[in-house]
Simulated scan of single mutants.
Amino acid sequence: MNKSTGFDWISILLFLLLVAFGWVNIYSASLNDSAQGFFDLSQTYGRQGLFIGLSVVLIIFILSVEAKFYERFSSVIYLASLLSLLGLFVFGKTISGATSWYAFGGFSIQPSEFAKAATALALAKYLSDIQTNIKSFKHQLGAFLIIILPALIIVPQPDPGSALV
């Protein structure tokens, strides 16, 4: 890790190379004669390129936020992720047999992906608390509940793969 910036630039470079390699594979597998350009959003590779770009912006934003923010608001983020999972039962869109997506026009989002990160964040905050003794059954049960609550909401959608993760 580079001490001046705090980033592991080799890992970042390897990640970007893997993403670029994956995108080139999608591009080469889906290229056809009707393509309008390199970033044609009507094609799979164009939409994937857009999502890659938006993800890079999101990554930069997440990394620019002070770490204390995540520590301070981990409970709120976790509760918001649980509410977004519960909202699927009312507002969710069924895709491939699973009602685990929110649809916004031509764009859909799966909140279980965010719930995975929120659960890890909440669990890390709980376990790092000075009053938490992981050897105590009460605290082990608390950690188990943090993990199992999102899974219990995800399973009936049905999306057991996301619940398992």
Rank of each mutant, 00 (worst) to 15 (best):
Q43S: 03
A67F: 15
L149E: 00
Q48V: 09
V90L: 05
L127T: 10
T119P: 08
I77R: 12
I154E: 05
R72T: 04
V56A: 07
G87Q: 07
A124S: 13
Y70W: 08
L149R: 02
P160Q: 06
I148Y: 02
F73M: 12
Y45W: 10
G105K: 06
V155D: 05
I26A: 02
P150N: 09
Y78E: 03
S74V: 13
W101T: 15
F144C: 07
S136H: 15
F144Y: 01
F39K: 00
S75E: 01
S108I: 12
A98K: 02
S100Q: 14
W23C: 00
F38L: 05
L152N: 08
P111L: 12
E113N: 03
V165K: 11
S30E: 07
I62D: 00
N25D: 11
L79N: 07
I59E: 09
F107D: 07
L123G: 12
L85K: 13
T132R: 15
I59F: 09
L88Q: 05
K135N: 07
G37P: 15
F69V: 11
S81M: 05
S81H: 06
S30V: 07
S108Y: 15
G46C: 03
T94F: 07
N2K: 11
G6F: 04
Y45C: 11
S75R: 10
F7W: 02
S74Y: 11
A67Y: 12
S28K: 12
A151I: 11
T94S: 14
A67E: 01
K68I: 07
I12P: 08
S136E: 04
R72N: 06
L13E: 07
A115S: 04
S11H: 01
A124V: 05
K116L: 09
F104N: 08
G46N: 14
P150F: 08
